[in-house]
Simulated assay, not measured.
Amino acid sequence: MITVTGAEKLLFLRVGEEQSAQEKFFGYLQWTREGLGKFTFAIVLWVTHQLMINLIKKAPDFWSWRNGVFRFFSHAKNVISAREVEAIRFGLINTELENFNSDNDYFLPIEDLQRLIQQIEQQSEIKDAKLASLYTTLANIYKQRLNRGEAQDYQQELDLAIKYTYKALELQKELRLEENIATRLNNLAYLYESQGRYSEAEPLYIQALALWRQLLADEHLDVATCLNNLAGLYESQGRYGEAEPLYIQALALWRQLLGNEHPSVATSLNNLALLYYSQGRYSEAEPLYIQALDICEQQLGVNHPNTVTVRENLVDLRDRLPPA
Rank of each mutant, 00 (worst) to 15 (best):
A273M: 06
A231W: 08
R176P: 04
A217E: 14
Y277S: 13
N260T: 02
S236W: 00
L274D: 15
N180D: 15
E286H: 06
P203Q: 06
T183L: 08
A250D: 07
H220K: 05
E219I: 02
I248H: 01
W254M: 01
A266P: 12
E244P: 00
D222S: 14
Q195Y: 05
N260S: 10
E242W: 01
A208T: 10
R213L: 05
R281C: 06
L230T: 14
E178L: 14
G259W: 03
A168T: 00
E202W: 09
A243R: 00
I181L: 02
Q172S: 02
P263I: 06
Y190C: 12
L211R: 09
A210T: 15
C296A: 09
A292L: 09
E219F: 01
N270Y: 10
S268N: 09
L275V: 13
L227E: 12
E242R: 01
Y198G: 11
N270R: 10
D222W: 01
Q298Y: 08
A285H: 08
G280P: 12
E235G: 00
I248K: 06
A252V: 04
G232H: 04
N229R: 07
A252P: 03
A273Q: 10
S283T: 04
R281D: 02
L191W: 11
H220V: 06
A189F: 11
R176G: 04
L177C: 10
T267A: 06
E242N: 02
Q291M: 07
L171Y: 01
Y190V: 15
G241E: 03
E286Q: 09
N229K: 07
A266H: 09
L215E: 08
T225Q: 14
E235W: 00
Y192A: 12
A252W: 01
Q256P: 04
L185N: 15
C296L: 09
S194Y: 05
Q298E: 12
S268R: 09
E179R: 14
I295Y: 11
A201C: 07
Y190Q: 14
L269F: 03
Q214V: 00
L251F: 03
I181P: 05
N186C: 10
L233T: 09
S264E: 13
L288R: 02
Q256Y: 09
T225G: 15
T183P: 03
I206E: 15
A252G: 08
L188T: 05
N187A: 02
A250R: 06
Y192R: 13
A201Y: 11
R281W: 08
Y198N: 13
Y205P: 11
H220F: 03
E297I: 07
Y190T: 14
E297Q: 15
Q249S: 07
A217R: 13
E284L: 04
L171D: 02
Q291L: 12
L275D: 11
E179N: 11
T225V: 13
S283G: 00
A210E: 15
N187E: 11
G259L: 03
P245W: 01
Y198Q: 07
T225N: 15
L274E: 15
R239I: 01
A273E: 08
L293I: 04
Q195M: 11
L227I: 05
A292F: 10
R255N: 09
E244V: 00
L230S: 15
A243F: 02
E202R: 13
A201W: 09
